[in-house]
Nucleic acid binder design. Structure first.
Lengths: 240, 240
DNA sequence: GCTTGACCCTGCCCCTGGGGCAGGGTTCGA
DNA sequence: TCGAACCCTGCCCCAGGGGCAGGGTCAAGC
């Protein structure tokens, strides 16, 4: 006859768990010996291993109880279902591992992969860290506001960065302008060039680039220090 | 600015979970708008995705909290550890799936694989279901009592079943004798043959076969109906 | 015979990671 | 202007046990 400790060890569960299964009515209470100790039979061990296996698969104990006295067909069906969702969970954990690996490598994890690639391109182009953070936050906000629009816009923006040298130059100049004095004469010139580019560009295609007011507004709200005196002045100059 | 619902959707968690993270101090409470609604920034989204990733990896929230403001080295170390035990958990689930598959196929699951193979051999030999159940229970009991001894004994028993024709015959006759009348004259003859075999066998090797009293006693205690009048008589005959 | 350590008993409270519901108020689009 | 879809706080509930208290018991070694 088996004591509770040996039974638990055989089945690979804790003694506490065995008592818990008794309470829940999953495992029959065995007889007691003269001192009140529970004394188990081999059948209990068989039942317990069955319970443990189902519980380890994440089946709620209440359902385990039902399955224990289900007929073989129902059991087989239930097992198939449990197995399927075990497979899904394994797959989910596998993906979690991948994300975890990215968490090691910085912030790529936190944005859609298109956006992550775009941020890498901007970094390669020489954009400032501040600018890149601003972009990241802007895209996150846009993504929450409208995932579909964000997907279209990011594609167009990447095409511009890749294919339009004047756009790249303007982008970097805007970035640099962040720290200029508000009365810096270069601001007016930059505003001019930008308007010229936009006029030429707007006639060919609809989206507006970085300076898109909606994005700017969102980004500004998203984080303190998202604008500067020079940028405010630049915005006013371009408004005219 | 993002509402709690959009934030939750972006990060793939429930609204309730977001509030829970606030309560636990994992995610900073954002400002409120004029009607008391929480209004999030992109930074919150970044933080939340980080939290979700760690939580999905099974890291307790209390530890997630610590990791959020750990320095990069500590974080990297922790991630390596978390990743390792994610790998272990995937492996564990994979094994659970295998056991689940066996649960479909009967009782092999509940005993060590050596024993399962032995039970299959006995079935192939033509042993009764009752006998096989008795064996299964006996081995489970032995295994809980002393896994090392059980391992040795099962090996020896399988060798006998495979290599000793007289042992096989005796085994099947003992099985059949279960249902005989207690005064069946075949019992005395069987007892004789058994004693003869044991005498010849004991001289070559130490273990005693099926009739091993310890096993018999264990098996008898393990389950009602583990003996019969004929078996009791057989035991008395062999004792003489 | 006595001690010591390993078991066993019941009962109670505690934890995590949220879910659900009540009983409100708010916003937004048609 | 109205209904659906959000949002708020607060409260109780769940599984699946862990931990601890405050006992009793058993087996081995001395």
């Amino acid at each position: 006859m088996i004591t509770i400790g040996r039974l638990a060890e055989y089945a690979g569960v804790s003694v506490k768990a065995v008592r818990h299964y008794h309470e829940r009515g999953l495992l029959a209470e065995p007889g007691r010996d003269s001192s009140g100790y529970r004394r188990y039979t081999a059948q209990h061990a068989v039942d317990l291993v069955k319970i443990r296996t189902l519980a380890a698969a994440g089946v709620p104990l209440a359902r385990v109880k039902d399955l224990l006295d289900a007929d073989p067909d129902q059991l087989a069906e239930a097992i198939a279902e449990i197995d399927g969702d075990l497979r899904d969970r394994i797959e989910g954990l596998r993906r979690t591992r991948e994300q975890l690996a990215q968490l090691r490598g910085g912030e790529r994890l936190f944005v859609a992969s298109e956006v992550a690639a775009h941020l890498d391109e901007l970094r390669a182009l020489g954009a400032s860290d501040r600018q890149i953070r601003l972009e990241r936050d802007g895209w996150i906000l846009m993504h929450t506001a409208s995932p579909e629009d964000a997907a279209v816009w990011i594609t167009e923006k990447r095409e511009l960065i890749e294919g339009d040298a004047e756009f790249r130059a303007l982008y970097l100049d805007h970035d640099a302008a962040f720290g200029w004095a508000p009365d810096d004469p270069r601001l007016a010139a930059l505003a001019d060039r930008t308007r010229t580019w936009m006029a030429g560009h707007r006639s060919r295609s609809e989206p507006r680039p970085v300076q898109n007011p909606a994005i700017a507004r969102l980004a500004r709200q998203s984080q303190p220090g998202a604008t500067s005196p020079a940028w405010d002045r630049l915005a006013r100059l371009m408004q005219d």
